[in-house]
Amino acid sequence: MIVVINGRDLHARPGDSLLDLARRTGIDIPTLCHHEGLEEWGGCRLCLVEVGRPGGHGAARVVPACLFPARDGLRVDTDTPRIHRLRAGVLDLLLARCPESDTIQELALQYGVRRTSFVERKNPDKCILCNVCVRACAAVGANAIGTAGRGVLGEIALPFHDDPAACVGCGACALSCPTGAIEMVDTGFTRRIWQRDFERVRCSACGRPTLTRDHAAHLAGRTGLSAESFQVCDRCHREQAGARFLDLLGK
């Protein structure tokens, strides 16, 4: 299967999206909501590219590279003036939503947008509603957060805005957020995230804080590993492994 991207003949594999193919062959396409480990979302619209019909007939269509499947004979352009204009427009809009986000500022600058030409949101946060956190949470198996509200009033929130019962405090949402919009604070043996204080397990060997108690229980339930195996931090696990080898050697 040959796909022509920016004039280059590229070999696509079955199941490839245009983004897969482009990234594998070193063609840069910006994304915000795309995450290789998560289900495709298609919401940020930064990866828009132009595709023409095979043979070059008919007007080019604008499609998101992340969702558009590679097809034999497809002609794709990733950097036309029209694509540049659309990406700049989208980033201009995102900058109005999140003027304080470094991620957005840097991307916008690459497309020549230094300041938004639109009305900045009042009391802006850094959330661009890309849903990476929600999808990561679903992947973890907690499903603790989702979108509340609709459209421009939508936000990533707990059920009913205040029920963190399903959250295990693993922090994957905060760490995978492309703009750092989710606050997670570790203070000693307490982790605060999603309006809730989580107790962190005290490593039974070194006494340092490790993962949260809820995350440990969640992992034990999902992996079939014993709950005790999550009472020791990774460093002490390793040290104990060394000690065990030593025992085996008979000193």
Binding site: L38, A136, A172, S176, L211, L219
Partner: peptide, 9 residues
């Protein structure tokens, strides 16, 4: 996604 489950597991 940096859930770090592998680290603990």
């Amino acid at each position: 996604i940096l859930c770090r489950a592998c680290v603990w597991a």
